[in-house]
């Protein structure tokens, strides 16, 4: 195998610096001891992390985001697992149209989805509620849950299921004892990816959230609109830390490139 030359490595270094620079800067500024935006060089302080406790709206928004992410990912999987099994193993008329429909939230701009949800939920009378947020997030994270479940259901050796049936297992037992364990890595990764997507979504949620149901990204966005101070960098740094943890878990469980390739491939279709 040929190796990269020095020019390539210089390019690579600059590229990586470009990619991590904004993330590093946010985390760095979060540790400033000053009362204003600055890059601490000698003194590092946790005062802005401690200050978070005095801003209940951030803490509350964080709680909303956690609940919303966990709940909508679980519900999305309840719909996605049967749908993935249907698409991966049964052939029926309209199957391709069905999977196109299920993956469509990836193609429709989130701003359009946000508007459509706002219009819809307002006219059915649940505008601004937490329930409306959950329903909207279920739809938006559904493609991610479906993709990874579908990938593992398609990759599964079906003769194992046939073996279980030949040994006397009924349909439910087969699903619980054979199918489910086989597609579990896909389901778990699908849940995590769905959670991250829900936890990070701003564009769609910003249309639906009201003061009681603001998620963390929405709260951060509205805060930044007014002014940028060290407080919002410490919030961001915390969010980055949480996402990185999930990211590393995801990489260990399933392989980040596999998770994201499935995603990139759909958005292009």
């Amino acid at each position: 195998m040929s190796r990269n030359g020095p020019l390539a490595l210089i390019f690579h270094t600059l590229f990586v610096v470009f990619m991590v620079a904004p993330i590093v800067v946010v985390c760095w500024v979060a540790f400033t001891p000053d009362g204003f935006l600055s890059i601490p060089l000698t003194n590092f302080s946790l005062r802005w992390f401690r200050a978070l406790a005095n801003y209940p709206e951030f803490v509350h928004a964080f709680g909303v985001s956690l609940w919303l992410g966990a709940l909508s990912s679980c519900i999305a999987l309840l719909f996605a697992v049967p749908a993935a099994l249907a698409i991966s193993r049964y052939r029926f008329r309209g199957r391709d149209a069905l999977s196109a429909l299920f993956l469509s939230p990836l193609m429709i701009p989130h701003v359009v989805l946000g508007i459509a949800f706002l219009r819809f939920f307002t006219s059915v009378g649940i505008g601004g509620t937490f329930v409306a947020l959950v329903i909207a997030h279920v739809v938006v994270v559904f493609p991610f849950a479906l993709r990874l479940t579908l990938a593992s259901a398609t990759g599964m050796d079906r003769s194992v299921e046939m073996a279980a049936i030949s040994l006397g297992a009924d349909g439910w037992t087969m699903f619980r004892r054979v199918t489910l364990p086989a597609i579990l890595p896909g389901i778990v990764s699908g849940w995590m990816l769905a959670f991250i997507q829900s936890f990070d979504d701003l564009t769609m949620t910003v249309f639906l959230a009201t003061p009681g149901t603001e998620t963390l990204p929405v709260r951060m966005f509205l805060y930044i609109q007014d002014n940028i101070d060290p407080l919002v960098t410490s919030v961001s740094a915390s969010v980055i830390a949480i996402t990185m943890t999930v990211l590393i878990l995801l990489d260990r469980i399933y392989g980040l490139d596999r998770v994201l390739t499935a995603k990139g491939g759909d958005a292009g279709r």
Binding site: P22, V24, V26, D200, M220, S236, V239, T243
Partner: peptide, 11 residues
């Protein structure tokens, strides 16, 4: 890609 777009843009 998976890190909050608000945090990245803030950066």
């Amino acid at each position: 890609l998976l890190i909050s777009v608000v945090a990245r843009t803030l950066g």
